[in-house]
Design a binder for these strands. Structure first.
Lengths: 328, 328
DNA sequence: CTGAAAGCGCTTACAG
DNA sequence: CTGAAAGCGCTTACAG
């Protein structure tokens, strides 16, 4: 910038004005400055700008896994809101590792993002307290923050799961299995709670062997499903705790000779084309992201004071698999 | 930092040393500095650091749409490589809009990312020349750069499509339709070229009505598929140019009374569970991302001189739909 | 082992 | 309409 000013024979401030399109420069001066910029290949350094201005016009997104189809639309929605506010998105995956989540979130804060949207992997976020105090806007999505008071946007995981299981019960099932993610993950715990509530509402005692929580890799889920289907008291229906579980359970069920009813949490692509079509409890990933990001920018605008918990409804989509009668 | 130094009764440099874990500080001094840091809630400002150091330890990723399942694994792979090199990922979607791609890429450069991985939407990237000259490492993925000489990592789109179509021909088809993305998109053009080559190799003259290129929204694709299936010379097989086209065509085919053979470019989830299973030409999205990112860091290490074009092979996965015989 | 000075590339507040 | 000075929060190069 100094070079540009020298070459154009003007002061630093004038170059700054031209670069930022501020008023108060004669066309002739502007032309000279522009010429010098082009000749020297000048590119404004936003790091310096940030240092001086305070705000960086960037927000951070810490999510679980960019490769999971559930997070694509969520993260795209956050991006669109950021874009509308002139901000860039810096993001990273925690891979469900609390340490990695913390490392990432703090690295983003050190880059002085204006705000942070976090899909938490851990359950203790006190490490963010100094950042929040220092003015970093923060919103949690999909899962609540742990041990700090913060904005959070969630799906109605409990209600959605309860409705899905109640749907199976309404179709005559009593022996219903639940396969979900690790219980320390909030969504997994809530959905299990929904399952239990629906069973209890119907007066059905739940056998331990009907519930299986753990990592959602295909091997573990496959074994869990097969055990439920072949035990002494085999289930006639399975409720899956998320999209990763669903794709594996649907595969296992396709191999069975008898028809087993199925409802999954999260919609999946092509669910309507399978035979039978896959009945799901759908959540709106884009709406989660959008709501969280809008909330973040409202924080940045100084609109809000008290952290809130916003819960978005889920939707039961019947396609066939959840309406199969029990076969025992 | 100044406050910390004052409170600890040391020089600025000593604080800097403690913060960065550099050697040459007595344990006692370090303790005093650490205490001041905690008391004051000091957080290092990486913007200032960047300004001084040159490198920002962040790379930019410009992709088409974060919500497209093809880009999730690609972008996750880029992230993992970045992480291994201690860099953060800043990204954004171009939404297939060349202006938006340019705006995003230049915004990332203004933030002084060390490098840029670009999935181009436009076909003229001369706007990046000054940045590249200024030292921003750049790699294009999935589609080549336009009008500049740069590293590019691609799938073998031509060969993959040719093999897929040849597979249909080998199963007795002659009237084969092609439905693809807009022809200005490199991958779409290459795959069409592969289709034409396979047909020509087999001595089959191609009717214009068998080819349909355009946006990949469900309405357009559905109409295109229906026209090919009901015209005077209806096709007995369809080749789909990408995953978005595949999901719609598979839906249309499920509604048909006669069996129409199908092969799609890009693998899709649950393709094996449909009836018939969906035969696809699969590309390795994660490998594309990984290869590109590794190439980027090699550029940053100063390893490379000449831009290269790296082409990754595709893989034909037969599952049933592509092996159906013609029914006419 | 420790620190004072200069400077990274901008913007802010002010004066002309 | 224009510019010189100070400063954002760090690091670098050097001296003690």
């Amino acid at each position: 910038m100094k070079d540009v000013a020298a070459r154009a024979g003007v002061g630093l401030k004038t170059v700054s004005r031209v670069v930022n399109g501020e008023p108060g420069v004669t066309p002739e001066t502007e032309r000279r400055v522009q010429e010098a910029i082009d000749a020297l290949g000048f590119r404004r350094n936003d790091s310096a700008r940030v240092l001086r201005k305070g705000r960086t016009a960037s927000i951070g997104l810490v999510l679980e896994d960019l490769a999971d189809p559930f997070y694509g639309p969520l993260s795209r929605a956050v991006e669109e809101v950021a874009r509308a506010h002139g901000a860039l998105l810096i993001n990273g995956s925690s891979a469900e590792d609390p340490d990695r989540e913390q490392e990432l979130a703090l690295a983003l804060c050190a880059r002085r993002v204006d705000g942070l949207v976090v899909i938490p992997a851990g359950d203790d976020h006190r490490y963010l307290e100094p950042e929040i105090k220092a003015g970093v806007a923060t919103v949690f999505v999909d899962r609540p923050a742990g041990r700090i008071d913060a904005d959070v946007v969630l799906s109605d995981n409990f209600g959605g799961a309860r409705d899905g299981v109640a749907h199976l019960i309404a179709h005559g099932h009593r022996r219903i299995g639940f396969i979900g993610d690790m219980p320390r993950i909030h969504t997994a715990a809530e959905r299990l709670r929904g399952y239990r509530a629906a069973m209890e509402d119907a007066g059905i005692p739940v056998e331990d062997s009907w519930m299986s929580l753990g990592v959602t890799d295909p091997q573990r889920v496959r074994r869990a499903a097969e055990e439920m289907l072949t035990g002494p008291d085999p289930v006639t229906a399975i409720f899956a705790g998320n999209n990763r579980v669903t794709v594996t359970v649907v595969r296992v069920l396709a191999e069975q000779s008898r028809r087993v009813a199925f409802v999954g949490f999260d919609d999946i692509e092509l669910a309507d084309l399978l035979q039978p079509g896959v009945t799901v409890v759908a959540q709106d990933a884009a709406a989660l992201g959008r709501t969280a990001a809008e909330r973040l920018f409202r924080q940045l605008d100084g609109d809000l004071i008290t952290p809130e918990r916003i819960e978005l409804p889920t939707r039961l989509i019947t396609r066939g698999s959840g309406e199969l009668p029990p076969t025992d």
